[in-house]
Write a protein that binds this DNA or RNA. Structure first.
Ligand code: FES
Ligand code: FES
Lengths: 136, 136
DNA sequence: TATAATTCCTACTAAATAAGTCTGAATATA
DNA sequence: TATATTCAGACTTATTTAGTAGGAATTATA
């Protein structure tokens, strides 16, 4: 349960890399982080669409962060790669629930979701990336 | 991300049923809860092996809770059906981690795991099952 | 003792999801 | 023009989850 997909782990590693690198191409990140480059390409695409990254095409192109890492909560990162967290179908979709609104399991799942959400919102990319090792 | 497996949802429904029913056969639970009975059979087997249920074979046999539902934290239930929560491989397995002990992503994942664990430990089966609707 | 109701055990199949690859177009720079 | 890059979509493969099938072992009871 709760296996965090490789995709998300890759995304985080790549973002951390970009915090330190300012700008980098897919290929260079893939090599540095040991991530299959074609796969990374797709992942960075998603991060871009989610507004976390800005890209530059063509020669000397690459990706860079769209905003300061202190302004990027991890919830956004996870959201970008996985989409909405949907623990259990009947939770989002009250109609599906057998027991209706008062359903206790429902409250249980909602509580779990909220525990996870709160945590993810409380941590920023900057904290995960650690002190900026500016190239001195 | 974080899809809770059907298996676990079934397990919870079955346990809630047993809180109210005291004792029941796989077939009767399966019917009442609309769960494929052969599948349920396997799930209850796991719950039994985990020490949550007690079984009686043969005619008039069935399953019942091994202990009072107020003494069963949901963490045990989840653990029983899914095994250890292992969010990310490198977290349990420090050797796998590229960055070693100080790895910040590692702390992030550990924090998430702990948020989830704390929540699961804080809720008991009794709370999910609600007031005992003893057959009056 | 025979029968029916049950748990238990093992192996298998099917469906869904995640991981990764391939091809090639579009774009920018030198 | 040649080269380095992002971008887009279809495709393949691997892994996990869900579900089925068949039958052995056990027990109550008729
Ligand atoms: S059965 Fe899932 S919310 Fe009620
Ligand atoms: S713990 Fe995962 S890379 Fe460090």
């Amino acid at each position: 349960m709760f296996q965090v997909p490789t995709k998300t782990q890759y995304a985080i590693r790549a973002l951390v890399h970009l915090v330190h690198a300012k700008s980098a191409s897919v290929a260079s990140i893939a090599e540095a982080e040991h991530i299959p480059s074609k796969y990374l390409e797709a992942i960075l695409g998603k991060l871009k669409n989610a507004g976390l990254l800005i890209s530059e095409r063509g020669r000397n192109g690459g990706y860079r962060l769209a905003k300061d890492p202190t302004l990027i909560p991890m919830s956004e990162v996870v959201q970008a790669t996985e989409g909405e967290i949907r623990l259990v179908e009947c939770v989002d979709n009250a109609a599906v629930c057998i027991l209706g609104e008062g359903c206790l399991p429902r409250h249980f799942w909602l509580g779990l979701k909220s525990a996870v959400d709160l945590y993810l919102e409380s941590v920023t990319l900057a904290e995960i990336a650690g002190p900026e090792t500016s190239s001195t």
